[in-house]
Design a protein around this nucleic acid. Structure first.
Lengths: 200, 200
DNA sequence: AAAAAATCTTATCTTTTGTTAACGTTTTGA
DNA sequence: TCAAAACGTTAACAAAAGATAAGATTTTTT
């Protein structure tokens, strides 16, 4: 099965956070389920509670808000990254954040309920607490960097940063999503690009 | 001693995350140290690695960046909140974020080294992993909300939000710090306040 | 108590962004 | 394959924000 290869990939990436022995891995995998999202289908529908943490095996998603009927894209995730609406997942309430596949996307997920069960299972509890801590810390650092860039930089500077380090986003996301991600309108991003082209 | 009362306060707040039994608490407290920061003294000096997670017993701090020689305030913490420069603390590298007391501030801290020791101590490991997870998750949610507000709202809307929920910040922080916190200049905040006064 | 520094507002001018709309191109979907 | 939708650019104008400086008031420091 291809599923085996996918599980192996997932396990390898998990090892950045936590290494399972064989017995633990068997129990852990019993809580996993695979999902395929066709392009434009949702990982979280507007208004829904986020029930899963997913790991993207292939494909990509965008996180978006809705304001005055308009969609505003706030973030992206790609293959070999986790995806969840953390606040909604943790609080069991609908978030302000929805998640949509932008390509056909294959995921391996575990549910909130599964996570609670594993946290309550003496065999896995310690490692799952640790996994949760390390994963949370990883995303905390991402957020810290992203907040810094909004506090200290102009949209143009953020775009220049993206040019140097945001290959996936630039190459795989439509520009109007990128504009939102930078905190500006698509028209404004188009102008920034023009400025950059003409000058330095 | 007043230290006892302070420890008790801290323990009570910790219980939002984790409850220690007496034996655990004794070991945990051996890793704590108290600090007093006079107004304008630093919790983290520019260029320094953040070595501690602190809990503010009284007082307040601001987090700030330096850009082009200018200080830009990105966040605040008040009594009964934790304070740390998470990325620097976790990565053991200097951050882009410095922390300064804005009033005489009393803290109870534990160092990175202490935390590692507790995480390696079988007696405390599980609870410290859990504590780390829950604390990280708490701040993750804060960041998620704060990022949303930058992606979906105008500075004026963020200021209006602050008027309804940001009592401490509004009452205890100078306005030019609040302006930075909202992502704008002090002059711009002054104009926003004027607009709000005149109209709705 | 006096001097210095910090704070906030206001004014002026410049730059940037938002809004709306038009246009051509590309992609999508029926 | 063909019509519809999505996408990116540009233009024109309005609104907002940045930069700079001046001035009044308050706070801090000496």
């Amino acid at each position: 099965m291809d599923t085996l290869k996918a599980l192996d990939t997932f396990r390898q990436h998990l090892e950045k956070y936590i290494a399972f022995n064989e017995a633990e891995w068997i129990v852990f995998t019993q809580h996993l389920h695979f999902t395929t999202l066709k392009k434009k289908k949702h990982f979280i529908e507007p208004g829904a509670v986020c029930n899963d943490v997913g790991f993207i095996l292939s494909g990509s998603v965008r996180y978006y808000h809705v304001k005055d009927g308009e969609e505003i894209t706030g973030y992206f995730s790609f293959e070999n990254e986790f995806v969840t609406s953390y606040k909604s997942y943790l609080t069991r309430q609908p978030g302000s954040n929805y998640i949509q596949a932008l390509e056909d996307t294959v995921l391996v997920n575990f549910s909130y309920k599964s996570m609670q069960q594993m946290l309550a299972n003496p065999m896995l509890a310690y490692k799952m607490e640790r996994f949760g801590r390390l994963l949370g810390e990883y995303y905390l650092i991402c957020y810290e960097d992203r907040m810094s860039s909004f506090i200290t930089k102009t949209p143009e500077e953020r775009y220049l940063d993206l040019l140097s380090t945001g290959r996936d986003i630039l190459q795989r996301m439509p520009q109007h999503y990128i504009a939102n991600f930078l905190g500006i309108t698509p028209v404004s991003l188009s102008r920034i690009r023009r400025r950059i082209l003409i000058h330095g």
